[in-house]
C-alpha cells in the first residue's frame, strides 16, 4: 500500500486544526481492537499462551524440572517432619501381654516416625490377621501416640486334636494353643472331625449339663453330624442330630429320676428320641443275666 501522497495544496492551518484525521495504521489498529474475536484472543488467549509458553519453556529444561521436584520433595519432607506429625510411641489396649508382644513384634516401627509414613490400613490388616485378634482399630492419637485398640477373641471351648489342644472362640475360630486341659478348667472340650464347625451346638449342650458337669469329659463330634457326650468311667451319651439339647435334658432328667448314670452302663443311645437305649457293660450284663436266672428259679 503506497504512502499517502501529500496534498497538492498547502493546508490551511486554521482548518487543519478542525480537521482530525486518523492515520491508516491507527485506523487499522482500532478496527482490529474492535473485532470481538481479536479482543477475546487478546484478553484470554494471549495471557494463557504467554503463561503456558513460559511454563513449558521453563519445564523443558531438565535442571529446572529436577530443581522443582527437589523443591516439592523438600517441602513435603519439611511438612512431614514437623513435630505435630511425629508419632513417638505405640499404645496397645485390650490385648493380653503375649498378644501385645506379638503385635509389637509384628509391627517393627522405629519411633519416632512421621505419621505420613505409617500405612494404617495395611497395619490394621496385619494385626487383624493375627489369630487371637477379633478386630483392631488403629489411629494416631493426639500427642503422637499410635493407638491400637484390639478386641481379643475369648476362648469358649478347647479343641482336642491329634496334634494337641487348642482354644476356639464361640464361632469356632482358632484362638491359640492351650498348654494343658488343667489350665482352662472352665472350658468344655470338644473333639472329633468337624467339631470346630459346630462349636455353638457344643456350647448349647454344655449349658444344660449342669447336674452332670462333674462327670463331663467333653463332647465328641460323630461323623460330622451329631454329638456324643463323653462322661468319665467311659460312659457316653449318644445324642441325635436334631433336638440334641432336648435329648440331653431328658437323659439328665432320667439320671435324676432313676440315677441312671450311676449304674454300670456304657452307652445311653438317645438317637431315636422315642426309644432311649442303653448298653450295659459286659460285667453288668452277666450280672443281670445271673439275677434273671435266680429270679427264674434256676440254680
Amino acid at each position: 500500500m503506497s504512502r499517502m501522497e501529500p496534498p497538492l495544496t498547502r493546508p490551511d492551518p486554521q482548518m487543519a486544526r478542525l480537521d482530525p484525521s486518523a492515520s491508516r495504521l491507527k485506523y487499522r489498529i482500532e478496527r482490529l481492537m474492535l473485532t470481538p474475536v481479536f479482543r477475546f484472543a487478546l484478553r484470554v488467549g494471549l495471557p494463557f499462551a504467554l503463561c503456558f509458553g513460559g511454563a513449558s519453556a521453563w519445564v523443558s529444561v531438565e535442571e529446572n524440572r529436577q530443581a522443582f521436584n527437589l523443591m516439592v520433595a523438600d517441602l513435603r519432607a519439611s511438612v512431614e517432619s514437623r513435630p505435630e506429625f511425629q508419632v513417638k510411641m505405640m499404645a496397645i489396649d485390650g490385648a493380653s501381654a503375649e498378644l501385645s508382644e506379638a503385635i509389637r513384634a509384628l509391627l517393627p516401627i522405629g519411633f519416632p516416625i512421621s505419621s505420613f509414613d505409617l500405612d494404617l490400613p495395611a497395619m490394621q490388616a496385619q494385626v487383624v490377621a493375627l489369630n487371637p485378634v477379633k478386630s483392631a482399630e488403629l489411629r494416631i492419637r493426639q500427642g503422637g501416640v499410635l493407638q491400637i485398640d484390639v478386641v481379643e477373641r475369648v476362648p469358649a471351648v478347647l479343641w482336642r486334636r491329634a496334634d494337641g489342644l487348642f482354644r476356639l472362640d464361640e464361632s469356632g475360630v482358632l484362638v491359640g494353643a492351650a498348654a494343658a486341659r488343667a489350665a482352662h478348667p472352665a472350658l468344655p472340650v470338644i473333639a472329633g472331625a468337624g467339631a470346630e464347625q459346630a462349636v455353638d451346638e457344643a456350647l448349647a449342650l454344655y449349658a444344660v449339663t449342669g447336674p452332670i458337669r462333674g462327670r463331663l469329659r467333653g463332647f465328641e463330634r460323630m461323623g460330622g453330624r451329631r454329638w456324643d457326650v463323653v462322661l468319665n468311667r467311659g460312659q457316653r451319651l449318644m445324642l441325635p442330630e436334631t433336638g440334641a439339647v432336648r435329648a440331653l435334658e431328658r437323659a439328665i432328667a432320667m439320671d435324676q429320676a432313676v440315677d441312671m448314670l450311676a449304674r454300670d452302663l456304657l452307652v445311653v443311645d438317645l438317637r431315636l428320641p422315642r426309644r432311649p437305649t442303653i448298653r450295659m457293660s459286659e460285667k453288668a450284663t452277666q450280672e443281670m443275666w445271673r439275677i434273671k436266672a435266680i429270679e427264674a428259679g434256676g440254680d
Binding site: L8, L18, P20, A22, R24, Y27, E30, R31, L34
Partner: peptide, 30 residues
C-alpha cells in the same frame, strides 16, 4: 467529519476522501 477532496458531490482527490471516510468511520465505530 468535514469533507475533504469532494467537489460537486464527486470525489476529486482520492487520498483525501479516503482519509475523511476513514475518520468518519473510525469515530462512528468507536
Amino acid at each position: 467529519t468535514r469533507s475533504r477532496g469532494v467537489r460537486f458531490g464527486e470525489i476529486h482527490s482520492m487520498s483525501e476522501t479516503e482519509r475523511a471516510i476513514r475518520t468518519a468511520v473510525q469515530a462512528a465505530q468507536k
